[in-house]
Design a protein around this nucleic acid. Structure first.
Length: 436
RNA sequence: GGAGAGGUGGCUGAGUGGUCUAAAGCGCGGGUUUGCUAAACCCGUGACCUCGCAAGGGGUCCGCAGGUUCGAAUCCUGUCCUCUCCGCCA
């Protein structure tokens, strides 16, 4: 959320920003309602003051006067309660608009729709194949790594089984990412896969409703998390930190669950858009002065991770129309996926955002300066270290060989214990244990 | 899942209807004293909203939401969380 006072004092700027970000939030209505709310609050404060004064006087009054004073007190309290109800009604609508107003945008973020800007390329050149490259679905099937049909049978379209070497690959990718991040003094965490709806909406997700990306748990106020950003950010909800404690860098492993409502027909093949995957996520709480640098740091780490894996990618500065509500600026890494489209295409594999104080304001995460009264909101940032499903796509498709095998990125080989995934022979398949 | 206890400021913790306008300690800040450091002593120290140029004033907040009352940290109901014990369980 933006600061209410800020919106009031900078309505034209906030409106302009909503336009750039394709947000339908009604800023004018917000300003009108907020102005009303303030007046009403002032009246309520005054009624409360009178009632408080009166109550104090009753304690000291003699018995003869008490009944009359009590009656007056009842009157005042009734009036105050009416004002309070009116206020609650106003506040509900106000809050709904308030939450819909997106964060401000970084002045350097490209403005408009389809205006994403490529900032740079990774170290690894695009691969060339002297054979028609397969996509990860074919590779996954031929090498018995990904069972989409099995996933569909058990849980429906969008679910899958990882099998055989793909299981080790998932674990190796987690460990690889973690090793890199531990050297950068992130505190590692394995987070809950469920979170309270209050936390979800603090981070900026809408737990329920027709467009929601979130699976909710029936008869509870819990939802499956769409990313560990939710749990890591929620970790310090309602905390006041000392400036010296910042920045705090965390990385969390969690499963991510997404309904992908409204995403049908959009690059749905294989592992690209699935309802569940595992992700190693980076998260930081910083002071306002630290957040821009931290965004660069996160982006650099994402680049380091994919350079290390030997996967070609480009870095994108996301345009304003495509920024999510909380993001002030967002960089995406798009990895080269040779099996995508006709000739191969770039596909998003990671993303890092500076959310400035937008999430912190909702979650109540503040810090304090020594020698200073009051508090300030921290800045929060998140970034993908590795989203396993999409990293798998990139590895399988970029490292495939003419004979149908897939070499393993050298950095993963010590973690995996093998250097390539080769087609199983019939004998090996027969020897593999079958579940009944 | 059952029984019990409890959630109070940055932390510990007192407070069972009206000077609670929340004690005290710790921590933190300032000062005095002081070869240095430490100790001791003194003073000051919650958040949020709002009015005011300021000094300062008002309101809200004792897990959360309701209720009783002129008045609630305190009484009642619901709810969430924590702890102890029992049961179940990887």
């Amino acid at each position: 959320m933006l600061d209410r006072k800020f919106i009031l004092e900078n309505a034209p700027l906030v409106k302009e920003n909503c336009l750039r970000r394709k947000s339908p939030a009604d800023v004018d209505r917000f300003v009108a309602l907020e102005t009303q709310r303030r007046a009403l609050q002032a009246r309520l404060d005054d009624l409360n003051r009178q009632a408080n004064e009166l109550s104090r006087s009753i304690g000291k009054a003699d018995a003869a006067q008490r009944e009359a004073l009590k009656a007056k007190g009842r009157e005042l309290r009734a009036e105050a309660q009416a004002a309070e109800h009116e206020l609650a009604g106003l506040a509900a609508e106000l809050d709904a608009i308030h939450r819909a107003i997106p964060n401000l945008s970084h002045p350097d973020a490209p403005v408009g729709e389809n205006a994403n800007r490529e900032l740079r390329r990774g170290k690894t050149p695009l691969p060339t194949f002297n054979f028609p490259p397969r996509d990860h679905v074919q590779l996954g099937e031929q090498l018995d790594l990904i069972d989409l049909e099995g996933g569909a049978r058990v849980a429906g379209h969008g679910f899958y089984f990882l099998k055989n070497e793909a299981v080790l690959l998932e674990l190796a990718l987690q460990r690889y990412a973690l090793d890199v991040l531990l050297r950068e003094v992130f505190t590692p965490a394995i987070t809950p896969d469920l979170a309270r709806n209050e936390i979800l909406s603090g981070i900026g997700y809408i737990p329920r409703g027709p467009e929601t990306q979130i699976y909710s748990i029936a008869d509870s106020d819990l939802s499956l998390v769409a990313t560990a950003e939710i749990t890591l950010g929620g970790l310090l909800a309602d905390h006041i930190l000392e400036r010296e404690e910042l920045p705090i860098k965390l990385c969390g492993i969690s499963h991510c669950y997404r309904t992908e409502a409204g995403a049908h027909g959009r690059a749905t093949r294989g592992l690209y858009r699935v309802h569940q995957f595992t992700k190693v996520e980076m998260f930081a709480f910083t002071t306002p002065e630290q957040s821009e640098e931290m965004l660069e740091h996160f982006c650099e780490l994402e680049c380091r991770l994919f350079d290390g894996l030997g996967i070609p990618y480009r870095v994108i500065d996301t345009c304003t129309a495509e920024l999510g509500g909380p993001a002030y600026r967002k960089f995406d890494l798009e990895a080269w996926m040779p099996g995508r489209g006709e000739q191969g295409e770039f596909g998003e594999v990671t993303s890092t955002s500076n959310c400035t104080d937008y999430q912190a304001r909702r979650l109540g995460i503040r810090f304090r300066n020594k020698h200073e009264k009051g508090t300030h909101f921290v800045h929060t940032l998140n970034g993908t270290a590795i989203a396993i499903s999409r990293a798998l796509i990139a590895i399988l498709e970029n490292y495939q060989q003419a004979d149908g095998s897939v070499r393993m990125p050298p950095v993963l080989q010590p973690l995996l214990g093998f250097d390539a995934i080769t087609p199983k022979t019939q004998a090996k398949r027969d020897a593999a244990p079958h579940s009944s």
